[in-house]
């Protein structure tokens, strides 16, 4: 079970990195192509923004998931200064992970509400008529991954593993 999960995690990590490299560079290139078409060719491109925004949303959310994977979300390091007892620190750490997990589950519900509406009502972008839910699904994807990685963290915290 555990080797399987860690293989899955490695695969996900690879996919996430591939997606951010692709979308990140694509966003930069598309915007520059936009300047070029407008200034040099005097023929502005409509709808470029729509593709840029779809790409950048997935870029952000995959980046946020990568942070979860590495457990590197921004947090205050206050307790480790205030509390010196390692046992107490461990309990506090476990509690914060549990709280985060609960909130990630709420986030999943909120994001699902957004995406299911988008699929049901089929909103689309003005120029290329791209379905909005494709972009909105990035939030749901991030929410689900947060839950998975926080569940992993909680198991580790409870079993007292260091990392």
């Amino acid at each position: 079970m555990v080797p399987f999960l860690s293989r899955l995690d490695q695969l996900l990590g690879f996919v996430l990195k591939a997606v951010v490299v692709l979308t990140g560079l694509a966003v930069a290139v598309m915007l520059v192509v936009g300047i070029f078409f407008r200034s040099a060719l005097e023929h502005p491109v409509f709808g470029l923004e729509e593709i840029v925004l779809f790409s950048v949303m997935w870029f952000y959310m995959c980046g946020a998931v990568l942070a979860s994977r590495e457990r590197s979300h921004l947090a205050a390091d206050f307790m480790s200064v205030m509390v010196s007892d390692p046992r107490k620190l461990r309990i506090i750490g476990t509690v914060t992970t549990a709280i985060s997990l609960v909130l990630a589950i709420f986030f999943t519900a909120w994001a699902w509400s957004l995406v299911s509406w988008g699929i049901e009502r089929g909103q689309s972008t003005p120029v290329f008529s791209l379905p909005m839910w494709v972009s909105q699904a990035s939030l749901l994807f991030a929410a689900v991954c947060f839950v998975l990685y926080l569940a992993r963290d909680l198991v580790r915290d409870l079993s007292g593993k260091e990392y």
């Binding site: 005097e42 502005p44 409509f46 709808g47 470029l48 923004e49 003005p126 120029v127």
Partner: peptide, 16 residues
Amino acid sequence: FPLPQTVQAMGFQAVP
């Protein structure tokens, strides 16, 4: 749509 198409048809360059 079709505001930029209209402005283009009038001879201008429409910029978003």
